[in-house]
Design a protein around this nucleic acid. Structure first.
Lengths: 194, 194
DNA sequence: GTAACTGTACCGATCGGTCGGTATACTACG
DNA sequence: CGTAGTATACCGACCGATCGGTACAGTTAC
């Protein structure tokens, strides 16, 4: 009784979290609804009482976390110094990956599994996020702090950060702080004038 | 008649190539054998005359291309100068991704879809490949050319290169030469002594 | 009562894979 | 020459299992 007033929302959150973990571990199409229902210890009917469809589950995960990343990016844009802005963006990104690795793994790796319309929507959010980085690079170049803007440099820097979702371990000896500090330093090296 | 002597091997190669493309585009589990048989314009029986199973198809692709990468890495190890060795490794990696993007996408993204034994085997090849890079970093550090070895730097550099399988476009304006040259320069910056 | 929550039995569709059988080409034997 | 034998390439029907999703009755909380 005491634990039952929050049921609906908390059950749904539990389902989404578990789904994200399973999708990240084994891939969206490899995970069946039977497997998910066993993981959350719910019958088929109960499971579908809380969610609309498997596709919606994926959509919700992929959309929410790239949207969160964009929200953080907006706050970074207030920083005028391009170097500091890069560091804030990098710190936010690594922190998000560290604290929501499964969800961001789904976000990065399973976009292709979304239906056409939804994939386009989520990809637009990815593009928007990348644009914030790009504009920081351009601002730095215009102020004479960075080398002239080069899309290859942008992709390289983003690759360095993004790829961490594949190797970072939440219980590993390397904390998010350590990683983001070193990555930020490397990013600034990559951007520095020759 | 005139085209039929080479059938078996070339048909199989065609199937593997098509499968790699489909797996890269939509994911291993999302691609059905019916879709593959339509793509190669063969009946079900004919398809299974050339391959043993869907899993074998994935295994063959994932194994062959990471093995090729390792073969190239072995030749790079002959280079004594760590800086040049990095450049050779980077050039080979980007060239391989550019020329076999679909296969390497499968190789990087679909390892998880392999059965346990095979996944372990392929992952061992990935580890071996990464070790070649690591040893180049360590050699450079020992010779006083690079900063002391740091696993975060290794992951960052590898992320920069690897991530290109997601954004590189074979018909794009950026050639493999351009990309690897700039990435190599950035990698050396990341490794340079402070 | 009623509205939220849950389990079970079930649906059509699709999954990877196998089956018996056919067409064609090459070889061997007379 | 003919013809029987063998191997390869191929087809489409079909298999049991599982897929995502639904219907509905039962239970619980207020």
């Amino acid at each position: 009784m005491s634990t039952d007033t929050k049921d609906d929302r908390s059950q749904r959150a539990r389902i989404v979290k578990t789904a994200a973990r399973l999708f990240a571990e084994r891939g969206y199409h490899a995970v069946g609804m039977t497997e998910l229902q066993n993981a959350v210890q719910l019958g088929r009917g109960a499971l579908y009482h809380h969610i609309r469809s498997k596709d919606d589950l994926l959509y919700d995960i992929a959309r929410e976390y790239i949207a969160d990343l964009n929200d953080l990016a907006v706050t970074a844009e207030r920083e005028a110094d391009p170097r500091k802005r890069i560091c804030i963006l990098g710190h936010h990104l690594i922190s998000m990956i560290a604290s929501h690795q499964a969800e961001l793994t789904v976000c990065f790796r399973e976009v292709q599994s979304l239906t056409d319309t939804r994939r386009a929507e989520v990809l637009a959010l990815h593009t928007r996020y990348e644009r914030v980085w790009k504009e920081a690079f351009i601002a730095g170049a215009e102020q004479g702090l960075f080398r002239p803007y080069d899309p290859v440099v942008l992709k390289g820097v983003l690759g360095m950060y993004f790829y961490s979702y594949l190797w970072m371990r939440p219980d590993g000896s390397l904390g998010a702080e350590t990683i983001s500090e070193r990555f930020n330093e490397m990013a600034l090296r990559m951007l520095a004038l020759a």
